[in-house]
Design a protein around this nucleic acid. Structure first.
Lengths: 214, 214
DNA sequence: ACAATGTGTGAACGAATATTCACGAGATTG
DNA sequence: CAATCTCGTGAATATTCGTTCACACATTGT
Protein backbone atom coordinates (compact mmCIF):
# COMPACT_ATOMS: atom_id res chain seq x y z
CA UNK A 1 0.00 0.00 0.00
CA UNK A 2 1.00 3.56 -0.62
CA UNK A 3 1.70 5.97 2.16
CA UNK A 4 0.90 9.61 2.87
CA UNK A 5 -2.31 10.53 1.19
CA UNK A 6 -2.87 13.80 -0.58
CA UNK A 7 -5.00 16.77 0.47
CA UNK A 8 -7.47 15.65 -2.19
CA UNK A 9 -7.85 12.41 -0.29
CA UNK A 10 -8.80 14.41 2.76
CA UNK A 11 -11.44 16.14 0.69
CA UNK A 12 -12.69 12.75 -0.45
CA UNK A 13 -13.02 11.68 3.14
CA UNK A 14 -15.03 14.75 4.06
CA UNK A 15 -17.23 14.32 1.01
CA UNK A 16 -17.86 10.69 1.92
CA UNK A 17 -18.63 11.69 5.47
CA UNK A 18 -21.17 14.23 4.24
CA UNK A 19 -22.85 11.60 2.13
CA UNK A 20 -23.20 9.11 4.95
CA UNK A 21 -24.12 11.63 7.63
CA UNK A 22 -26.71 13.00 5.21
CA UNK A 23 -28.32 9.59 4.85
CA UNK A 24 -28.07 8.22 8.37
CA UNK A 25 -27.70 11.21 10.62
CA UNK A 26 -25.07 11.77 13.31
CA UNK A 27 -26.13 8.74 15.35
CA UNK A 28 -26.91 6.40 12.49
CA UNK A 29 -23.66 6.84 10.58
CA UNK A 30 -20.81 4.53 11.56
CA UNK A 31 -17.16 5.50 11.50
CA UNK A 32 -16.29 2.10 10.06
CA UNK A 33 -18.61 2.47 7.09
CA UNK A 34 -17.38 5.99 6.42
CA UNK A 35 -13.78 4.81 6.43
CA UNK A 36 -14.56 1.86 4.20
CA UNK A 37 -16.49 3.88 1.64
CA UNK A 38 -13.74 6.49 1.59
CA UNK A 39 -11.13 3.76 1.09
CA UNK A 40 -9.15 4.43 4.25
CA UNK A 41 -8.88 2.79 7.64
CA UNK A 42 -10.72 3.95 10.72
CA UNK A 43 -7.45 4.85 12.33
CA UNK A 44 -6.85 7.70 9.96
CA UNK A 45 -10.14 9.31 10.91
CA UNK A 46 -9.00 9.41 14.51
CA UNK A 47 -5.59 10.67 13.51
CA UNK A 48 -7.15 13.75 11.93
CA UNK A 49 -10.21 14.20 14.12
CA UNK A 50 -10.62 13.79 17.85
CA UNK A 51 -13.87 11.85 17.65
CA UNK A 52 -17.03 11.36 15.64
CA UNK A 53 -18.56 14.67 16.57
CA UNK A 54 -15.40 16.51 15.69
CA UNK A 55 -15.39 14.82 12.31
CA UNK A 56 -19.03 15.69 11.86
CA UNK A 57 -18.31 19.35 12.49
CA UNK A 58 -15.49 19.21 9.96
CA UNK A 59 -17.90 17.83 7.37
CA UNK A 60 -20.37 20.55 8.22
CA UNK A 61 -17.86 23.33 7.79
CA UNK A 62 -16.63 21.86 4.56
CA UNK A 63 -20.19 21.94 3.33
CA UNK A 64 -20.91 25.41 4.67
CA UNK A 65 -17.98 26.78 2.74
CA UNK A 66 -19.48 25.76 -0.57
CA UNK A 67 -22.89 27.11 0.39
CA UNK A 68 -21.40 30.38 1.50
CA UNK A 69 -19.41 30.90 -1.63
CA UNK A 70 -22.58 30.29 -3.62
CA UNK A 71 -24.46 32.92 -1.64
CA UNK A 72 -21.54 35.29 -1.89
CA UNK A 73 -21.46 34.97 -5.65
CA UNK A 74 -25.14 35.67 -6.09
CA UNK A 75 -24.99 38.51 -3.60
CA UNK A 76 -22.14 40.21 -5.42
CA UNK A 77 -24.44 40.86 -8.35
CA UNK A 78 -26.44 43.67 -6.77
CA UNK A 79 -29.91 43.78 -8.20
CA UNK A 80 -33.58 44.42 -7.51
CA UNK A 81 -35.22 42.07 -5.08
CA UNK A 82 -37.12 40.10 -7.69
CA UNK A 83 -34.18 39.69 -10.05
CA UNK A 84 -32.11 38.77 -7.08
CA UNK A 85 -34.69 36.18 -6.10
CA UNK A 86 -34.58 34.68 -9.59
CA UNK A 87 -30.80 34.37 -9.47
CA UNK A 88 -31.03 32.87 -6.04
CA UNK A 89 -33.65 30.30 -7.03
CA UNK A 90 -31.59 29.22 -10.03
CA UNK A 91 -28.42 29.01 -7.99
CA UNK A 92 -30.13 26.90 -5.36
CA UNK A 93 -31.60 24.60 -7.98
CA UNK A 94 -28.21 24.09 -9.53
CA UNK A 95 -26.53 23.56 -6.18
CA UNK A 96 -29.19 21.06 -5.17
CA UNK A 97 -28.62 19.09 -8.34
CA UNK A 98 -24.86 19.04 -7.91
CA UNK A 99 -24.56 18.54 -4.15
CA UNK A 100 -27.76 16.97 -2.86
CA UNK A 101 -25.97 15.32 0.04
CA UNK A 102 -24.82 18.69 1.35
CA UNK A 103 -28.41 19.83 1.59
CA UNK A 104 -29.44 16.56 3.17
CA UNK A 105 -26.75 16.84 5.80
CA UNK A 106 -27.82 20.38 6.47
CA UNK A 107 -31.32 19.10 7.04
CA UNK A 108 -30.01 16.52 9.48
CA UNK A 109 -28.45 19.30 11.48
CA UNK A 110 -31.75 21.06 11.88
CA UNK A 111 -32.90 18.00 13.84
CA UNK A 112 -30.36 18.59 16.60
CA UNK A 113 -31.60 19.99 19.88
CA UNK A 114 -30.45 21.93 22.89
CA UNK A 115 -27.62 24.42 22.99
CA UNK A 116 -25.73 22.95 20.02
CA UNK A 117 -28.78 23.61 17.87
CA UNK A 118 -28.78 27.28 18.84
CA UNK A 119 -25.11 27.63 18.03
CA UNK A 120 -25.43 25.92 14.70
CA UNK A 121 -28.41 28.04 13.74
CA UNK A 122 -26.51 31.21 14.53
CA UNK A 123 -23.49 29.96 12.61
CA UNK A 124 -25.38 28.81 9.54
CA UNK A 125 -28.27 31.24 9.26
CA UNK A 126 -26.48 34.39 10.36
CA UNK A 127 -25.30 35.44 6.93
CA UNK A 128 -28.48 34.87 4.99
CA UNK A 129 -30.78 36.26 7.66
CA UNK A 130 -28.90 39.54 7.76
CA UNK A 131 -28.80 39.68 3.97
CA UNK A 132 -32.46 38.94 3.39
CA UNK A 133 -33.66 41.23 6.14
CA UNK A 134 -31.62 44.08 4.69
CA UNK A 135 -32.94 43.44 1.18
CA UNK A 136 -36.54 43.35 2.32
CA UNK A 137 -36.14 46.39 4.56
CA UNK A 138 -34.60 48.32 1.65
CA UNK A 139 -37.45 47.34 -0.60
CA UNK A 140 -39.97 48.30 2.01
CA UNK A 141 -38.56 51.75 2.73
CA UNK A 142 -38.06 52.56 -0.96
CA UNK A 143 -41.70 51.80 -1.64
CA UNK A 144 -41.07 48.76 -3.82
CA UNK A 145 -42.80 46.65 -1.18
CA UNK A 146 -46.03 47.20 0.66
CA UNK A 147 -45.29 49.15 3.80
CA UNK A 148 -47.55 47.48 6.30
CA UNK A 149 -45.21 44.53 6.62
CA UNK A 150 -42.65 43.52 9.18
CA UNK A 151 -39.42 43.23 7.16
CA UNK A 152 -37.97 40.67 9.55
CA UNK A 153 -40.93 38.34 9.22
CA UNK A 154 -41.18 38.74 5.47
CA UNK A 155 -37.50 37.92 5.12
CA UNK A 156 -38.15 34.95 7.35
CA UNK A 157 -41.03 33.69 5.18
CA UNK A 158 -38.90 34.29 2.10
CA UNK A 159 -36.10 32.15 3.46
CA UNK A 160 -38.56 29.51 4.61
CA UNK A 161 -39.71 29.06 1.04
CA UNK A 162 -36.17 28.82 -0.30
CA UNK A 163 -35.15 26.39 2.40
CA UNK A 164 -38.08 24.09 1.74
CA UNK A 165 -37.32 24.30 -1.96
CA UNK A 166 -33.85 22.92 -1.39
CA UNK A 167 -35.10 20.14 0.86
CA UNK A 168 -37.74 19.29 -1.72
CA UNK A 169 -35.02 18.77 -4.31
CA UNK A 170 -32.70 16.71 -2.14
CA UNK A 171 -34.35 14.88 0.76
CA UNK A 172 -36.30 11.73 0.01
CA UNK A 173 -39.19 12.63 2.25
CA UNK A 174 -39.61 16.10 0.81
CA UNK A 175 -39.10 14.86 -2.73
CA UNK A 176 -41.96 12.41 -2.30
CA UNK A 177 -44.04 15.19 -0.80
CA UNK A 178 -43.41 17.50 -3.72
CA UNK A 179 -44.36 14.75 -6.15
CA UNK A 180 -47.50 14.21 -4.15
CA UNK A 181 -48.47 17.85 -4.64
CA UNK A 182 -47.42 18.14 -8.26
CA UNK A 183 -48.07 14.64 -9.50
CA UNK A 184 -44.43 14.09 -10.42
CA UNK A 185 -41.25 16.12 -10.18
CA UNK A 186 -41.94 19.47 -11.88
CA UNK A 187 -39.50 21.11 -14.28
CA UNK A 188 -36.99 23.48 -12.71
CA UNK A 189 -38.20 26.30 -14.93
CA UNK A 190 -41.82 25.84 -13.88
CA UNK A 191 -40.89 25.91 -10.21
CA UNK A 192 -38.75 29.01 -10.77
CA UNK A 193 -41.55 30.79 -12.56
CA UNK A 194 -44.29 29.90 -10.10
CA UNK A 195 -42.24 30.60 -7.02
CA UNK A 196 -41.34 33.98 -8.44
CA UNK A 197 -45.02 34.71 -9.01
CA UNK A 198 -45.76 33.71 -5.46
CA UNK A 199 -43.02 35.97 -4.15
CA UNK A 200 -43.76 38.81 -6.52
CA UNK A 201 -47.34 38.85 -5.35
CA UNK A 202 -46.41 38.74 -1.71
CA UNK A 203 -43.88 41.51 -2.11
CA UNK A 204 -45.78 44.00 -4.19
CA UNK A 205 -49.43 43.68 -3.39
CA UNK A 206 -50.88 46.58 -1.48
CA UNK A 207 -54.56 46.65 -0.89
CA UNK A 208 -54.54 50.38 -0.25
CA UNK A 209 -53.12 50.95 -3.73
CA UNK A 210 -56.10 49.31 -5.38
CA UNK A 211 -58.51 52.10 -6.36
CA UNK A 212 -61.92 51.59 -4.89
CA UNK A 213 -63.77 51.90 -8.17
CA UNK A 214 -61.37 49.46 -9.90
CA UNK B 1 -45.60 -3.31 42.37
CA UNK B 2 -49.02 -3.06 40.82
CA UNK B 3 -50.11 -5.22 37.94
CA UNK B 4 -52.14 -4.68 34.77
CA UNK B 5 -51.78 -1.13 33.68
CA UNK B 6 -54.60 0.93 32.30
CA UNK B 7 -55.11 2.14 28.72
CA UNK B 8 -54.08 5.57 29.96
CA UNK B 9 -50.73 4.09 30.89
CA UNK B 10 -50.35 2.89 27.33
CA UNK B 11 -51.03 6.43 26.20
CA UNK B 12 -48.38 7.65 28.64
CA UNK B 13 -45.91 5.26 27.11
CA UNK B 14 -46.61 6.47 23.59
CA UNK B 15 -46.42 10.07 24.70
CA UNK B 16 -43.07 9.41 26.37
CA UNK B 17 -41.85 7.65 23.25
CA UNK B 18 -42.82 10.64 21.13
CA UNK B 19 -40.91 12.93 23.45
CA UNK B 20 -37.72 10.91 23.31
CA UNK B 21 -37.89 10.08 19.61
CA UNK B 22 -38.52 13.78 18.99
CA UNK B 23 -35.32 14.72 20.81
CA UNK B 24 -32.98 11.93 19.77
CA UNK B 25 -34.36 10.53 16.56
CA UNK B 26 -35.06 6.88 15.75
CA UNK B 27 -31.42 5.84 16.13
CA UNK B 28 -30.56 8.05 19.07
CA UNK B 29 -33.46 7.09 21.31
CA UNK B 30 -32.94 4.09 23.57
CA UNK B 31 -35.65 1.64 24.55
CA UNK B 32 -34.28 1.54 28.10
CA UNK B 33 -34.54 5.31 28.59
CA UNK B 34 -38.04 5.36 27.13
CA UNK B 35 -39.14 2.62 29.50
CA UNK B 36 -37.53 4.31 32.47
CA UNK B 37 -39.02 7.72 31.76
CA UNK B 38 -42.43 6.15 31.22
CA UNK B 39 -42.09 4.29 34.51
CA UNK B 40 -42.33 0.78 33.10
CA UNK B 41 -39.89 -1.99 32.35
CA UNK B 42 -38.37 -2.64 28.94
CA UNK B 43 -40.15 -5.96 28.82
CA UNK B 44 -43.55 -4.37 28.55
CA UNK B 45 -42.50 -2.45 25.46
CA UNK B 46 -41.67 -5.74 23.76
CA UNK B 47 -44.90 -7.29 25.01
CA UNK B 48 -46.92 -4.69 23.14
CA UNK B 49 -44.63 -3.96 20.20
CA UNK B 50 -42.54 -6.30 18.12
CA UNK B 51 -39.43 -4.12 18.12
CA UNK B 52 -38.17 -0.56 18.23
CA UNK B 53 -39.34 0.33 14.76
CA UNK B 54 -42.78 -1.07 15.41
CA UNK B 55 -42.99 1.03 18.56
CA UNK B 56 -41.83 4.07 16.63
CA UNK B 57 -44.59 3.59 14.07
CA UNK B 58 -47.10 3.31 16.90
CA UNK B 59 -45.89 6.62 18.30
CA UNK B 60 -46.14 8.17 14.87
CA UNK B 61 -49.70 7.01 14.33
CA UNK B 62 -50.69 8.14 17.78
CA UNK B 63 -49.36 11.55 16.88
CA UNK B 64 -50.91 11.59 13.42
CA UNK B 65 -54.32 10.96 14.91
CA UNK B 66 -54.19 14.16 16.92
CA UNK B 67 -52.92 16.13 13.94
CA UNK B 68 -55.61 14.72 11.72
CA UNK B 69 -58.41 15.49 14.09
CA UNK B 70 -57.10 19.04 14.28
CA UNK B 71 -57.14 19.38 10.51
CA UNK B 72 -60.55 17.75 10.33
CA UNK B 73 -61.98 20.21 12.80
CA UNK B 74 -60.68 23.25 10.95
CA UNK B 75 -61.74 21.79 7.64
CA UNK B 76 -65.28 21.18 8.80
CA UNK B 77 -65.82 24.91 9.07
CA UNK B 78 -66.10 25.63 5.35
CA UNK B 79 -64.92 29.10 4.60
CA UNK B 80 -63.09 31.37 2.19
CA UNK B 81 -59.43 30.60 1.61
CA UNK B 82 -58.12 33.49 3.67
CA UNK B 83 -60.43 32.91 6.61
CA UNK B 84 -59.59 29.29 6.40
CA UNK B 85 -55.90 30.16 6.45
CA UNK B 86 -56.39 32.27 9.57
CA UNK B 87 -58.15 29.42 11.36
CA UNK B 88 -55.42 27.07 10.26
CA UNK B 89 -52.60 29.30 11.45
CA UNK B 90 -54.24 29.73 14.84
CA UNK B 91 -54.89 26.02 15.15
CA UNK B 92 -51.29 25.20 14.30
CA UNK B 93 -49.99 27.78 16.77
CA UNK B 94 -52.11 26.30 19.50
CA UNK B 95 -51.16 22.75 18.62
CA UNK B 96 -47.48 23.66 18.55
CA UNK B 97 -47.75 25.18 22.01
CA UNK B 98 -49.55 22.16 23.43
CA UNK B 99 -47.71 19.32 21.70
CA UNK B 100 -44.29 20.54 20.59
CA UNK B 101 -42.80 17.08 20.79
CA UNK B 102 -45.27 15.79 18.21
CA UNK B 103 -44.05 18.36 15.74
CA UNK B 104 -40.45 17.60 16.60
CA UNK B 105 -40.96 13.91 16.01
CA UNK B 106 -42.63 14.71 12.75
CA UNK B 107 -39.57 16.67 11.78
CA UNK B 108 -37.34 13.73 12.68
CA UNK B 109 -39.34 11.60 10.28
CA UNK B 110 -38.63 13.96 7.43
CA UNK B 111 -34.97 13.07 7.86
CA UNK B 112 -35.54 9.43 6.94
CA UNK B 113 -34.45 8.26 3.52
CA UNK B 114 -35.15 5.61 0.94
CA UNK B 115 -38.42 3.79 0.42
CA UNK B 116 -39.65 4.26 4.01
CA UNK B 117 -39.44 8.00 3.47
CA UNK B 118 -41.67 7.81 0.41
CA UNK B 119 -44.26 5.75 2.25
CA UNK B 120 -44.27 8.02 5.25
CA UNK B 121 -44.65 11.10 3.10
CA UNK B 122 -47.64 9.60 1.29
CA UNK B 123 -49.17 8.57 4.59
CA UNK B 124 -48.66 11.86 6.36
CA UNK B 125 -49.03 14.43 3.62
CA UNK B 126 -51.78 12.77 1.61
CA UNK B 127 -54.67 14.38 3.43
CA UNK B 128 -53.40 17.94 3.58
CA UNK B 129 -52.02 17.94 0.04
CA UNK B 130 -55.36 16.93 -1.42
CA UNK B 131 -57.16 19.45 0.76
CA UNK B 132 -54.93 22.41 -0.01
CA UNK B 133 -54.74 21.68 -3.71
CA UNK B 134 -58.53 21.53 -3.89
CA UNK B 135 -58.90 24.80 -1.98
CA UNK B 136 -56.42 26.62 -4.17
CA UNK B 137 -57.85 25.16 -7.37
CA UNK B 138 -61.35 26.26 -6.30
CA UNK B 139 -60.08 29.74 -5.56
CA UNK B 140 -58.33 29.91 -8.87
CA UNK B 141 -61.27 28.79 -11.00
CA UNK B 142 -63.74 31.00 -9.16
CA UNK B 143 -61.58 34.03 -9.84
CA UNK B 144 -60.65 34.69 -6.21
CA UNK B 145 -57.03 33.95 -7.12
CA UNK B 146 -54.89 35.08 -10.01
CA UNK B 147 -55.35 32.64 -12.86
CA UNK B 148 -51.79 32.40 -14.15
CA UNK B 149 -50.77 30.14 -11.32
CA UNK B 150 -50.26 26.43 -11.01
CA UNK B 151 -52.66 25.42 -8.21
CA UNK B 152 -50.55 22.43 -7.25
CA UNK B 153 -47.41 24.51 -6.76
CA UNK B 154 -49.22 27.30 -4.95
CA UNK B 155 -50.75 24.75 -2.58
CA UNK B 156 -47.26 23.35 -2.14
CA UNK B 157 -45.77 26.74 -1.27
CA UNK B 158 -48.68 27.37 1.05
CA UNK B 159 -48.02 24.16 2.94
CA UNK B 160 -44.30 24.83 2.97
CA UNK B 161 -44.92 28.03 4.87
CA UNK B 162 -47.23 26.36 7.37
CA UNK B 163 -44.83 23.49 7.87
CA UNK B 164 -41.89 25.77 8.55
CA UNK B 165 -44.06 27.76 10.92
CA UNK B 166 -44.67 24.70 13.04
CA UNK B 167 -41.02 23.73 13.05
CA UNK B 168 -40.12 27.27 14.01
CA UNK B 169 -42.32 27.01 17.08
CA UNK B 170 -41.12 23.58 18.20
CA UNK B 171 -37.64 22.60 17.02
CA UNK B 172 -34.65 24.14 18.76
CA UNK B 173 -32.77 24.82 15.57
CA UNK B 174 -35.70 26.53 13.87
CA UNK B 175 -36.62 28.40 17.02
CA UNK B 176 -33.15 29.87 17.18
CA UNK B 177 -33.38 30.70 13.50
CA UNK B 178 -36.67 32.51 13.93
CA UNK B 179 -35.25 34.51 16.82
CA UNK B 180 -32.31 35.37 14.63
CA UNK B 181 -34.63 36.85 12.03
CA UNK B 182 -36.98 38.57 14.43
CA UNK B 183 -34.65 39.46 17.27
CA UNK B 184 -36.61 37.38 19.74
CA UNK B 185 -39.68 35.17 19.61
CA UNK B 186 -42.46 37.26 18.03
CA UNK B 187 -46.01 37.31 19.41
CA UNK B 188 -48.36 34.72 17.97
CA UNK B 189 -50.72 37.43 16.82
CA UNK B 190 -47.99 39.29 14.93
CA UNK B 191 -46.95 36.15 13.12
CA UNK B 192 -50.55 35.36 12.29
CA UNK B 193 -51.14 38.82 10.92
CA UNK B 194 -47.96 39.01 8.88
CA UNK B 195 -48.21 35.52 7.47
CA UNK B 196 -51.76 36.26 6.42
CA UNK B 197 -50.58 39.40 4.66
CA UNK B 198 -47.90 37.41 2.91
CA UNK B 199 -50.43 34.81 1.80
CA UNK B 200 -53.14 37.32 0.97
CA UNK B 201 -50.75 39.11 -1.32
CA UNK B 202 -49.61 35.95 -3.00
CA UNK B 203 -53.16 34.77 -3.50
CA UNK B 204 -54.81 37.91 -4.76
CA UNK B 205 -52.10 39.90 -6.45
CA UNK B 206 -53.31 40.31 -10.02
CA UNK B 207 -55.59 43.27 -9.55
CA UNK B 208 -57.13 43.10 -13.00
CA UNK B 209 -58.46 39.68 -12.08
CA UNK B 210 -59.77 40.69 -8.67
CA UNK B 211 -63.57 40.73 -9.10
CA UNK B 212 -64.15 43.76 -6.91
CA UNK B 213 -61.74 45.66 -4.71
CA UNK B 214 -63.01 46.51 -1.25
C1' DA C 1 -58.74 -21.75 49.19
C1' DC C 2 -56.07 -22.85 45.51
C1' DA C 3 -54.76 -23.89 40.95
C1' DA C 4 -54.39 -21.86 36.40
C1' DT C 5 -53.57 -18.07 33.71
C1' DG C 6 -52.02 -13.56 32.44
C1' DT C 7 -48.75 -9.88 32.75
C1' DG C 8 -44.94 -6.82 34.22
C1' DT C 9 -39.97 -7.23 35.66
C1' DG C 10 -35.17 -6.54 34.94
C1' DA C 11 -30.96 -9.24 34.72
C1' DA C 12 -28.55 -11.36 31.03
C1' DC C 13 -27.07 -11.97 26.22
C1' DG C 14 -25.32 -10.77 21.86
C1' DA C 15 -24.68 -7.65 18.15
C1' DA C 16 -23.08 -3.24 16.85
C1' DT C 17 -19.85 0.35 17.13
C1' DA C 18 -16.87 4.25 18.93
C1' DT C 19 -12.22 4.40 20.11
C1' DT C 20 -7.43 2.80 20.98
C1' DC C 21 -2.84 1.19 20.01
C1' DA C 22 0.91 -2.02 18.79
C1' DC C 23 2.62 -2.86 14.39
C1' DG C 24 4.99 -2.34 10.09
C1' DA C 25 5.54 -0.40 5.51
C1' DG C 26 7.24 3.47 3.15
C1' DA C 27 9.54 8.14 3.64
C1' DT C 28 13.38 10.79 5.40
C1' DT C 29 17.86 11.68 6.92
C1' DG C 30 22.82 11.34 7.30
C1' DC D 1 22.40 1.98 2.61
C1' DA D 2 21.17 1.86 7.25
C1' DA D 3 18.91 4.10 10.99
C1' DT D 4 15.10 6.60 12.23
C1' DC D 5 10.82 8.67 11.76
C1' DT D 6 6.01 9.16 10.04
C1' DC D 7 1.76 7.75 9.49
C1' DG D 8 -1.87 4.53 7.90
C1' DT D 9 -3.62 -0.10 9.40
C1' DG D 10 -7.09 -3.03 11.36
C1' DA D 11 -7.51 -6.29 15.15
C1' DA D 12 -8.74 -5.68 19.96
C1' DT D 13 -11.33 -3.33 23.64
C1' DA D 14 -14.97 -1.32 26.08
C1' DT D 15 -19.35 0.29 26.05
C1' DT D 16 -23.87 0.93 24.58
C1' DC D 17 -28.20 -0.82 23.35
C1' DG D 18 -31.86 -3.89 21.20
C1' DT D 19 -33.95 -7.97 22.49
C1' DT D 20 -35.09 -12.18 25.18
C1' DC D 21 -36.78 -14.98 28.93
C1' DA D 22 -37.13 -17.18 33.46
C1' DC D 23 -39.42 -15.49 37.24
C1' DA D 24 -42.80 -13.37 40.59
C1' DC D 25 -46.93 -11.80 41.62
C1' DA D 26 -51.89 -10.36 40.64
C1' DT D 27 -56.12 -11.82 38.79
C1' DT D 28 -59.54 -15.18 37.51
C1' DG D 29 -62.18 -19.36 37.72
C1' DT D 30 -63.79 -23.26 40.35
Amino acid sequence: MLKKFSPEKLEDILETGIEIFADKGLHGAGMASIAQQAGVSVGVLYKYYANKEDFFRACLHHSLNSLESLLQEVTSREDKLLNYSRQLIRALQSFSARHPSHIRMYHQITASSGEPARQLAAEIEGLSSRLYTRLIADGSSSGALRRDIDPALFAFFFDNLLMMLQFSYCCDYYKARMELYCGGMPEDSLVEEQLLRFLESAFTFDRSLVPHGD
